[in-house]
């Protein structure tokens, strides 16, 4: 089975295989707004490359660094904030 079709979007089951996260963790990340699906249809959320990269980051933080999901949430939001500030600085 090919995991990706020409659309470049992935369902939860394919996302789980690619990222190494459990489906519960992926759904938690979606529910808590840590990852915003690239697309949503009647079958549920779909992830694109950007979202997969973010979920891989979640895996590194949880599995490699041992941070719990609540901590990951804080880390990710901080990283987003840093990124936004860097962008802001670069514009000046």
């Amino acid at each position: 089975m090919r995991e990706q079709d020409q659309s470049g979007y992935y369902r939860i089951d394919a996302t789980v295989k690619i990222t190494g996260l459990s489906s519960e963790t992926v759904l938690y990340c979606v529910e808590e707004g840590l990852v915003r699906p690239a697309m949503t249809d009647s079958d549920g959320p779909l992830m694109g490359p950007v979202e997969l990269a973010r979920l891989r980051k979640v895996r590194r933080l949880t599995q490699d660094l041992g941070i719990n999901l609540e901590g990951v949430e804080v880390v990710l939001r901080l990283l987003d904030e840093i990124e936004a500030l860097r962008t802001q600085l670069a514009r000046r």
Binding site: D5, Y9, T40, S42, V50, A84
Partner: peptide, 23 residues
């Protein structure tokens, strides 16, 4: 993307309302 159906929602990141105070 191919396969969209009635009511599908496609997200275009960062193209909504601008943030406040650098948000």
């Amino acid at each position: 993307p191919p396969g969209v159906d009635e009511g599908s929602r496609v997200r275009v990141a960062g193209q909504g309302s601008p943030g406040k105070a650098g948000g």
